[in-house]
Write a protein that binds this DNA or RNA. Structure first.
Lengths: 206, 206
DNA sequence: ATGAACTTGTGAATTTCTTCACAAGTTATC
DNA sequence: GATAACTTGTGAAGAAATTCACAAGTTCAT
């Protein structure tokens, strides 16, 4: 199977969101053109994106909303539940732990860790904050698929190393630090400072 | 001036972060190769990125860390302070308001708005939460450059319209909703659900 | 002053991503 | 069942981004 571009995966995720919206509104079929209009892209792009995975539409008619949504969920691996741990119970970590949108989409937060002894033992949204040191053992008992890093930039690499060593193969990194990990580990970064600087650039050079 | 790709701007932002780190550690000059190693790219990419804006290095020697950092700050428009308003004082909005990393990089949060009367009047990190209705008037008195949307997906478009109407030309959108705005307005989206789905895809098809 | 070791800046080549364009299939109407 | 109006799926073309490769400039050691 050919390597799928990151940009394609991001668009699939967008399409799925639109489809779920259409599904809720009781719309049965949709054309690539309508889907494209919603996502700020073109119908050819939509069809090309989908073509990497098969052909899901009917010529002359379009796509069945329910069916395409199901196929996208399958492609994106959203048919199962993923176990997520959050590392860092500061402002961002705590906000993420309390955000229930994740659970709704099958990302279940199973643990929250922090290295600060003052925080360990307290609870966030029903989860007791655990000592970061205990992570390797805990993960053995209750495996986790994805680690969310909400720690300061200075300790991000160290924590990432620990997480990788514990066998976790996907990291969502909120720390403004470029992580170095083996290429068997998937990393996505959410970097607000970078986005703001992108806006600053746009405002300056617009 | 040729249009600069988004990916280039993101990398410039990364380079700047590394340079600031090198600056702190007292390193005077750096080669494109060292900069590339840090950012997971290639030296040719670094040089190409910079070449869109001029030539800042010395052949045989590399780049002056301080000088290149200064040029990047200038290019990214970070020499001035940007006035930021946060809309939505929920979990995410409040966490952002309390995150001081923004201010350190010249993004000063000047106001927080919410449409919930129960929240209006309370304060977050020294800022009194204001009624969303009052935004158009408030922005006239104290202009804002960037609006951060931390509202539910269902009201995101409505709030974006309001913000655009008030004359704000840059939006950082945390709501999982694709905004439609005039192309004079710059939008960056931070979409955690999308990033998680990207990880889900990687884990499934890795 | 010369040679060796670096490193930049940049056209050209290459690779990757997006858009075009159209055959082929579907539905609706008369 | 013939025609018109759609829409998909995809090879080919085009555009954009990345990488290559090398001339030209700099430093350092001898």
């Amino acid at each position: 199977m050919k390597r799928i571009a990151d940009s394609t995966v991001r668009r699939l995720s967008l399409y799925l969101r639109f489809l779920e919206d259409f599904e809720k509104r009781g719309i049965g079929t949709i054309s690539s053109d309508e889907l494209a209009a919603r996502g700020g892209t073109t119908s050819a792009q939509v069809r090309k994106d989908l073509s990497f995975f098969g052909s899901f539409g009917k010529r002359g008619l379009g796509y069945s909303v329910a069916e395409l949504a199901a196929r996208l969920r399958q492609i994106l691996g959203l048919e199962r539940e993923w176990q997520v741990i959050i590392i860092g119970a500061g402002k961002i970590g705590a906000a993420l732990a309390q955000y229930h949108g994740f659970a709704q989409r099958g990302f279940r937060i199973v643990a929250v860790y922090d290295s600060d002894p003052a925080k360990v033992g307290r609870s966030v949204d029903g989860l007791v904050i655990q000592a970061l040191d205990s992570l390797p053992d805990e993960v053995k008992h209750q495996p986790a698929d994805i680690a969310v890093l909400a720690v300061p930039a200075t300790s991000a690499q160290e924590v990432a190393d620990m997480v990788v060593k514990a066998g976790i193969r996907a990291i969502l990194n909120f720390a403004p630090h470029q992580l170095q990990v083996p290429d068997t580990v998937a990393v996505k970064a959410v970097n607000m400072a970078m986005e703001l600087e992108g806006l600053s650039f746009a405002l300056t050079n617009g």
